[in-house]
């Protein structure tokens, strides 16, 4: 089993895919991240990340049929793979362990 240390942006993209269930492709993924985080996202960055995640085997994709309103191109739908889900859980656990027992006072601005 390979270990995937996920970057923050990779986590956001994977989580968006998970939220969208079977309806995840480029446009809704960007919208989902922007809606939930409230910050704007460089669209191209999402696509580059999707490609990298697929290379790592964390997601898989398939093309839908082309449609005229998309200039004769199909959609590339993305699905979270088991490996991707595990990587997300690991990332969450790692973060939670880091938060455990942290004195809130130590975060206060001096």
């Amino acid at each position: 089993m390979t270990h995937h240390g996920l970057g923050e942006f990779e986590q956001l993209v994977l989580l968006a895919i998970a939220h969208l269930r079977g309806e995840a492709y480029g446009i809704p993924i960007v919208e989902e991240i922007e809606r939930r985080t409230g910050r704007s996202v460089a669209r191209a960055a999402v696509y580059v990340t999707l490609r990298r995640l697929e290379d790592k085997g964390l997601v898989s994709s398939w093309m839908s049929d082309p449609t005229p309103e998309r200039g004769g191109k199909g959609r590339r739908y993305v699905r979270l793979e088991a490996e991707g889900a595990r990587a997300l859980r690991e990332a969450r656990h790692a973060t939670e362990r880091m938060w455990q027992g942290l004195d809130p006072a130590s975060l206060r601005a001096r």
Partner: peptide, 15 residues
Amino acid sequence: VPDDAGAAVEGDLHE
């Protein structure tokens, strides 16, 4: 954009 991502990117931007 590389071939494997090209069609999807072009379609999304078109939409």
